[in-house]
Design a binder for these strands. Structure first.
Lengths: 227, 227
DNA sequence: GTCTATAGGGGGATAGAC
DNA sequence: GTCTATCCCCCTATAGAC
């Protein structure tokens, strides 16, 4: 019945971080929520910063392994052929959405992750960059192969926009209330909605960019067909 | 050459808020940056919270007025006919992107706004809800009219996803580095890229919400009619 | 391993001189 | 309007008893 103090601290920190942000969450709040002593954090983790890293690493490593596993499975199936964009989106964003639907802590963590991208503490940013390096490299390569007609820079922006949509899909329960009453209780529906939106955006007609203009000139508002 | 202390404090707070977040920014940092005395914040604004509100209100009111003006202009032109989705997206997101391109403070502010949605302090959330009430109502109505075949709940989610993409488009300069080197120096290009992505997502085929959970229990009767 | 107690540093806010 | 000085609070981290 009595769970490990270390685990209780990680769980409490995760919950409080997502509610109040990293900085506004104090060790006193964490240890009170975890029913542990104030000194327990420093005993088990060494510092607040080290605890923060542990909170992220605990689930993020697993999440990115799942993403890579999903991508690898599709690639094995495709036998060297480019994947369908939908499969790659599924492997990256679908896995994240499913983790966000997991009420056993995954949900809390994904909300934390969603708000952390736009909340850049120096050490968290550095840490995230390391944790993401491999998965980003794998998915970039897969996307470039699957979408040879989309310029790579255009794709990187779209990937970035997709991450924004994912972030709001997950952590947006609060911000969403701005728009009025909405039902966010069905993870399957959210999954379907987000996938549809992302693929629509990813495969949108390419914007008609002026080819490196030095002077400001009129632009044609029309777009071209995408691949 | 000596500008108003009040203005210098607002500018300094805006810059520091976007760099460190609301909570981690101290009055001491703000007054040092503004070359003002520590007591000046409380003299001019009353409290840190009141200063925070002033920082947001200064530009947000103007931004939302611009959005409503842009929408009204399109509506006047349309003479009662539904607008094109592209026009509504332009009025809401285009205005924001253009403000983000304004190096005269607008850029800083939009980055702040982008990270604030996912960083919910109770009083900021309440404040944003008030500031946004009118503009949200106007744009929801316009979208519903322009997209009669998209179920309203589906649209609200898509609007939410679009806000996520906007947020990352603006404040994502940092998070973006995860993806590798990328050129974010051309606001016109960013504008074109985001518009294209948003409209692609907004007009994506509707997700089939009923077929998905086939292995699980039956879900709600229907996903309304599709177009 | 877990606790109490405390050190040592900032934090927001304010009183009162100028 | 602006400044100095200060109050009182809460923070992280640690020393040392149990």
């Amino acid at each position: 019945m009595e769970t490990d103090t270390r685990i209780r601290i990680l769980d409490a920190a995760e919950r409080l971080f997502v509610m109040h942000g990293l900085d506004a969450t104090t060790l006193r709040m964490i240890t009170a929520e975890a029913q542990a002593n104030l000194a327990a954090v420093n005993y088990h983790f060494g510092s607040k910063e080290a605890l923060t890293e542990a909170v992220f690493r605990r689930r993020l490593t697993w999440l990115n392994e799942q993403r890579i596993a999903a991508l690898s499975a599709f690639e094995a199936e495709a036998k060297g052929q480019p994947l369908k964009p939908r499969q790659i989106v599924e492997a990256f964003f679908g896995v994240a959405i499913r983790m966000a639907a997991d009420h056993n802590g995954g949900q809390t963590f994904m909300r934390l992750l969603g708000r952390t991208y736009t909340e850049p503490t120096e050490f968290v940013r550095k840490f995230l960059a390391e944790e993401y390096a491999e998965v980003i490299a794998r998915f970039k390569a897969a996307f470039f192969k699957a979408l040879p007609d989309v310029p790579q820079e255009e794709f990187l922006w779209r990937f970035h926009f997709m991450m924004g949509a994912l972030s709001y899909a997950i952590s947006g329960t609060e911000a969403l209330r701005l728009l009025g009453p909405i039902d966010d209780s069905d993870p399957e529906a959210l999954y379907a909605r987000l996938m549809s939106f992302l693929i629509g955006g990813l495969r949108a007609p390419l914007p008609d960019l002026v080819v490196k203009p030095v002077a400001k000139t009129a632009r044609k508002p029309r777009a071209k067909r995408a691949a």
